[in-house]
Amino acid sequence: MAGQLSVEDLQRIAEVGQEAERACAGASSEAALEEVRIRYLGRQGVIAQAFRALAGAPAEDRPRLGQLLNALKADVERAVRRRAESLAAETGLTRLAEERIDVTLPGRGPLPGRRHVLSRTMQEMAEIFIGLGFEVVEGPEVEADHDNFERLNMPPYHPARDAQDSFYLGGGWVLRTHTTVVDVHVMERRTPPMRAISYGHCYRRDPVDASHSPMFQQLDGFMVGEGVRFSDLKGVLLHFARAFFGPDTRTRFAPSYFPFTEPSAEMAIGCVICGGRGCAVCKRSGWVEILGCGMFHPRVLELSGIDPERYTAFAWGMGVERLAMLRHRIDDIRLFYEGDLRFLRQV
């Protein structure tokens, strides 16, 4: 049934296929390729004409010729598509190459904002104590002399007031010398058990130098309850020191004196600057004091209406600047309040 097909016909179809593939390969642009496509695949193209000529072919040859022409059309279409793809890739690459920029130019944009190292430090400390069940509260900076001192067992002219030389506003108002006074306010408004911390500005009449500022930040905390022990104080502060300075931090508690605590202690940590080998910061001792603490004096509890036989309490207070200075190796407290952006952006 296919016997009528001439060799010429078959050769002609094969030649057209080869020509078209060569034309595709030779098309050097998308426009040239489009010409090739129209020449072969267009409505007046070679293959369309061949299909039209099919009507004149012997009836028994038509199906076979039709198959061959369809195969030819598919081949040419594939050749055009491939070439189109390769041309697109080439021109795309060229365009991308032309769009090259100097990637080593410096970045451009706004400088990032940043919170003050002390406000971040206080927040971080507060979070550590929140995790231990403490409530964070705040109190006023201007206090009655009575609250700031007497209710903390420091009567007028008590020698311990020397360490807390204070600024007065007249009318018996004093700029609080410690945030411990906030503990007093919490105790008068609440009933045990209670755990609270507070932080903020405190004021002492110290001449300004690298380690003294008339205004500084303190963080104080306390816990009142039945069976609260000195050992709990050690445990809570040890946890704090490790959370703040790192898990390997060593602590040391030594006796001290505060009129509002008994027993009183000072906590030192292994010097974070020299690792305990001895340096200028720790005065060659290997230890730096970071806070004062103790069990609230029974008198302080009594003055706040808490029965000291039934309840015991511990309290501590620390200078926020000192901790931040140790952690960030800052050597001058004045930097915190000067506002030099090179400092504020750095730490």
Binding site: H116, S119, P214, Y337, G339, L344
Partner: peptide, 8 residues
């Protein structure tokens, strides 16, 4: 950038 200044 947050700054802190003396209240005094």
């Amino acid at each position: 950038v947050e700054a802190l200044t003396l209240t005094l």
